[in-house]
Amino acid sequence: MKIEYKVNAPVSTDQFVELLKASNLAERRPVDDRVCMAGMLANSNLTVTAWWGGKLVGIARSVTDFHYACYLSDLAVHADYQKCGVGRQLQVLTQRQLGAHCKLILIAAPAANDYYPHVGYQSNPRCWVLDRDQCISR
C-alpha cells in the first residue's frame, strides 16, 4: 500500500486532533478546544492530506487568496511517517493549487526550524503576532 494524497478531502475534527497529537504540533495547538479545532478545519480554504489506508497521516492546512499569499498554518506529519517525504509532497501539492506568483508563508515550529531552509524556504524576520488576549494600543 502507498500513501494517497488528496486535495480538500473531508477531515473530521477527531482525525485532525489525533494527527496533531501524533506529530509534534499538539503542544502548540488548542487540541482540547473542539470548537476551535472544528473551526480551524471548516475555515481553511485549502487542505492537502496524506492517507495510509483510511488513516490520516499528514495534512497541509492553509488559508489563501490563491494569487498572492498562502499561509500554511499547519504542516503536520504523523511521527511514524516523518522523514519519508510526506511533508515535502504535501507542500508540493499545496503549491500546485496556487497561482504562479503565490507565495507560501509559514511560521515554523521550533523543532522544525532547521527543516525549512533544506527544502527551499527563506527566513524572514518580519513576522509579528498579536495574541487574542492582547489589545492593539491606540
Rank of each mutant, 00 (worst) to 15 (best):
residue 1 M to G: 15
residue 2 K to P: 15
residue 2 K to W: 10
residue 3 I to V: 15
residue 3 I to K: 06
residue 4 E to T: 15
residue 7 V to T: 14
residue 7 V to K: 13
residue 8 N to R: 10
residue 9 A to M: 10
residue 9 A to H: 14
residue 10 P to C: 09
residue 12 S to P: 00
residue 14 D to I: 03
residue 14 D to Q: 11
residue 15 Q to P: 00
residue 15 Q to I: 05
residue 17 V to L: 01
residue 18 E to Y: 08
residue 19 L to E: 04
residue 21 K to F: 02
residue 22 A to L: 09
residue 22 A to H: 08
residue 23 S to Q: 06
residue 24 N to H: 14
residue 26 A to Q: 03
residue 26 A to L: 01
residue 27 E to K: 14
residue 27 E to D: 12
residue 29 R to N: 08
residue 29 R to I: 00
residue 29 R to V: 00
residue 29 R to H: 08
residue 29 R to D: 00
residue 30 P to A: 01
residue 30 P to C: 02
residue 31 V to M: 01
residue 31 V to G: 00
residue 35 V to L: 03
residue 36 C to Y: 05
residue 36 C to M: 12
residue 41 L to D: 05
residue 41 L to Q: 06
residue 43 N to I: 02
residue 44 S to D: 01
residue 44 S to K: 07
residue 46 L to H: 09
residue 46 L to C: 08
residue 47 T to F: 03
residue 47 T to N: 13
residue 49 T to W: 05
residue 49 T to G: 06
residue 49 T to C: 08
residue 49 T to A: 08
residue 50 A to M: 03
residue 52 W to Y: 15
residue 53 G to F: 02
residue 54 G to L: 03
residue 55 K to P: 00
residue 55 K to M: 08
residue 57 V to N: 04
residue 57 V to D: 06
residue 58 G to F: 06
residue 60 A to D: 05
residue 60 A to P: 07
residue 62 S to I: 02
residue 64 T to S: 12
residue 65 D to Y: 07
residue 65 D to E: 04
residue 66 F to D: 12
residue 66 F to H: 10
residue 66 F to A: 08
residue 67 H to F: 13
residue 67 H to V: 15
residue 68 Y to N: 13
residue 70 C to P: 06
residue 70 C to W: 06
residue 73 S to V: 02
residue 73 S to P: 00
residue 74 D to S: 07
residue 75 L to K: 04
residue 76 A to D: 03
residue 76 A to H: 03
residue 76 A to W: 02
residue 76 A to P: 01
residue 77 V to E: 03
residue 81 Y to I: 07
residue 81 Y to R: 02
residue 81 Y to Q: 05
residue 83 K to A: 15
residue 84 C to F: 15
residue 84 C to Q: 15
residue 85 G to P: 10
residue 85 G to F: 06
residue 86 V to D: 04
residue 86 V to W: 03
residue 88 R to S: 12
residue 89 Q to H: 14
residue 94 T to R: 03
residue 96 R to H: 13
residue 97 Q to S: 11
residue 97 Q to W: 06
residue 99 G to V: 05
residue 99 G to I: 06
residue 99 G to P: 11
residue 100 A to G: 12
residue 101 H to S: 13
residue 102 C to D: 10
residue 102 C to A: 11
residue 103 K to I: 04
residue 103 K to H: 12
residue 103 K to Q: 13
residue 104 L to G: 05
residue 104 L to D: 11
residue 105 I to C: 10
residue 106 L to Q: 07
residue 107 I to S: 12
residue 107 I to Y: 04
residue 107 I to V: 14
residue 108 A to C: 07
residue 108 A to E: 03
residue 110 P to Y: 07
residue 111 A to N: 12
residue 112 A to T: 07
residue 113 N to P: 01
residue 114 D to T: 15
residue 115 Y to K: 02
residue 115 Y to C: 09
residue 117 P to Y: 11
residue 117 P to C: 10
residue 117 P to A: 11
residue 117 P to S: 11
residue 118 H to Q: 15
residue 119 V to C: 08
residue 121 Y to R: 05
residue 123 S to N: 12
residue 123 S to F: 13
residue 124 N to F: 13
residue 124 N to V: 09
residue 125 P to I: 02
residue 127 C to N: 09
residue 128 W to D: 02
residue 131 D to L: 08
residue 132 R to V: 11
residue 132 R to H: 09
residue 133 D to L: 09
residue 134 Q to D: 12
residue 134 Q to K: 14
residue 135 C to T: 14
residue 135 C to W: 12
residue 136 I to D: 05
